[in-house]
């Protein structure tokens, strides 16, 4: 997976992207994914555009955007590091790894690092449950993260 590069928010581009998918049945999620793919987030300014194009109320669109964990309302700070917190990774020691990443970033899981270069988040299972602790760094999967690999992981995340 390529590291993402995002365009700055542009209503004109958003309208184009929406038009690409608007005719599909159940178009809203594919469009939200496409917007997030392009801009790195789905800003509130997109909501009226979506509502207009899909003939939905703004409240409906807002309800959908806020329901799903994937959609960001604001751009992430720096690279996004998602570390799996689910049971199988817990059994393989992700608790200790999480603590060490938190210490290295100077922040708790669930937000940006102290220097703003990394957004550190929880994810619940990446399907790598016999290869954990598992993480996704800007879309790239990383397995077998032992505590002695945390320094390297954090360096990559900050790069």
């Amino acid at each position: 997976m390529q590291p993402p590069t995002y365009e700055p928010w542009s209503p004109e581009r958003a309208v184009e992207i929406i038009a690409l998918h608007a005719d599909r049945e159940g178009a809203l999620l594919p469009i939200l994914h496409a917007l997030q793919h392009a801009f790195g987030h789905v800003p509130d300014a997109a909501v009226p555009l979506l509502a207009g194009a899909l003939n939905l109320s703004r409240a409906d669109v807002h309800g959908v955007v806020s329901f799903y964990h994937d959609y960001r309302r604001a751009p992430a700070s720096g690279k996004v590091l998602k570390l799996c917190q689910a049971e199988a990774c817990q059994a393989r020691g992700v608790g200790q790894v999480t603590k060490e990443v938190e210490a290295a970033l100077g922040s708790k899981i669930g937000g940006p690092s102290a220097d703003g270069r990394v957004t550190f988040e929880a994810v619940y299972c990446l399907g790598l449950c016999a290869s954990g602790p598992a993480a996704m760094l800007d879309g790239r999967l990383i397995g077998r993260i032992s505590p002695d690999r945390v320094a390297e992981l954090v360096r990559e995340a900050r790069a």
Binding site: G26, A27, L29, L32, V64, F67, H69, D70, V123, Y124
Partner: peptide, 20 residues
């Protein structure tokens, strides 16, 4: 889009339809 409950079959159908 990262919602565990969407594995439940009826929530999944709503999700394909573009709903919560």
């Amino acid at each position: 889009a990262g919602a565990y409950v969407c594995g439940e079959e009826t929530a999944l159908l709503d999700s394909i339809e573009g709903k919560r």
